[in-house]
């Protein structure tokens, strides 16, 4: 029994670190959001079912990653399983509330990033209105230094639609990766389409 449990645990851990290919073209995220990348990405596979987000990367998540929020409902945090950078005592992460305005959604996202990266000092910039999936939304940029001493830049584009937070976020090293991936990120954000039962 113990051996069986150990094998099951090994399979689970292995699955957590697997990546699958996302080909260019329309891709459905959890049946609620469609994105259309123009280049191939790696998608983290085997994520915990409770984790409400998806992660794509080109060169590995420490260098660049696109974080996808496919409609996170009220009362749920953006992160369920903290990264290994995070203080294990830091949970629970802040959760979405229906009364939040754009400034407070930015604060929620920024604070989540900060806590999950080990209480890093994070600077937000240029919060402004935009559209996401044809709905009024918001966008902001941010910067922080990771506890691994790499400096990161990032951008978030999203919207609260019918009480759920949708969005895409690019986080990449300031040196090279952010600028390199930004055009594709802009295309991804522009391609976002919320999926409903009728669509």
């Amino acid at each position: 029994m113990t051996r069986l449990f150990a094998v099951a645990l090994l399979v689970l851990l292995t699955a957590c670190n697997q990546w699958t290919l996302v080909n260019p073209g329309p891709t459905n995220i959890r049946s609620s959001l469609q994105l259309s990348p123009t280049i191939a990405f790696n998608q983290r596979a085997g994520a915990l079912p409770a984790q409400p987000t998806e992660t794509w990367t080109l060169d590995g998540p420490l260098l660049n990653r696109v974080w996808i929020l496919p409609g996170i409902p009220e009362g749920r945090p953006l992160v369920v399983a903290p990264s290994t950078f995070a203080d294990p005592n830091a949970r629970p992460f802040p959760a979405i509330k229906p009364t939040m305005n754009e400034t407070e959604m930015m604060e929620l996202i920024a604070d989540t990033i900060s806590i999950d990266n080990g209480q890093v000092a994070l600077t937000t910039e240029n919060l402004r209105p935009t559209t996401f999936s044809g709905q009024p939304g918001f966008r902001f940029d941010f910067q922080f230094a990771g506890r691994n001493e790499l400096r990161y830049r990032g951008s978030f584009v999203g919207a609260m639609i019918d009480g759920k937070l949708f969005g895409v976020m690019l986080t990449a090293t300031s040196l090279h990766h952010y600028q390199s991936l930004l055009p594709e990120f802009e295309r991804l954000a522009a391609s976002a389409r919320r999926l409903t039962a009728a669509s």
């Binding site: 420490l62 990653r65 992160v79 950078f85 990266n117 080990g118 990771g146 691994n148």
Partner: peptide, 8 residues
Amino acid sequence: MSEGRLFD
């Protein structure tokens, strides 16, 4: 979102 380990 990230990988690593922090403080004691």
